[in-house]
Amino acid sequence: MFDINPGLMVWTVITFVVLVIALSKYAWKPLLKSLRDREDSIRQALDQAEKARAEAAELLKQNEQNLVKAEEEYQKIIREGKTFAEKLKEEVVAKAHQQAQREIQRAKEEIQRDVDAAKQQLRSEVADLAVLAAGKILDETLDARKHKKIVDSFLNQLPNS
């Protein structure tokens, strides 16, 4: 069992050397190459995926920022609109108020004028009536004293205005 057979050793060495030479060229080289290629492509794909992921994250961040900005802008617009509407409302109300005041003033003045005119007219009519009454009294009993008394009492009966 332990005796060395040189012939078998020669066979082994020759077989092995031939196998190494043949397989190096026809088996291991292509096998290792396809292995390396695949590893490279996987590594590349992973790198690309990582890059794409980073890009997507960047985009997402940008989108979020844009969204926040848009939100702010829209809030601002609403705020501005509100203040503008408020101002407009106040202005309109103030104007209307003014207008109304003016109208009221004018109406008052007109009323005053009418009242004055009416008073004037009344006075002149009262005078006429007095004269008429005086004439009638004179027709009956013309007494200076009586006459004066009548006129005074008449005048006193008139309203003060």
């Binding site: 057979n5 040189p6 012939g7 078998l8 020669v10 066979w11 082994t12 077989t15 092995f16 031939v18 196998l19 043949a22 397989l23 026809y26 088996a27 291991w28 080289k29 292509p30 096998l31 396809s34």
Partner: peptide
């Protein structure tokens, strides 16, 4: 003694197997 023997035969058979399978796999 380069005569064929059982072990030489299986040695060569192994070499053949390895060669055929490895090249096929490649």
């Amino acid at each position: 003694d380069l005569s064929m023997s059982k072990h030489v035969f299986f040695l060569l058979l192994s070499a053949l197997f390895v060669a055929v399978f490895a090249i096929y796999a490649a």
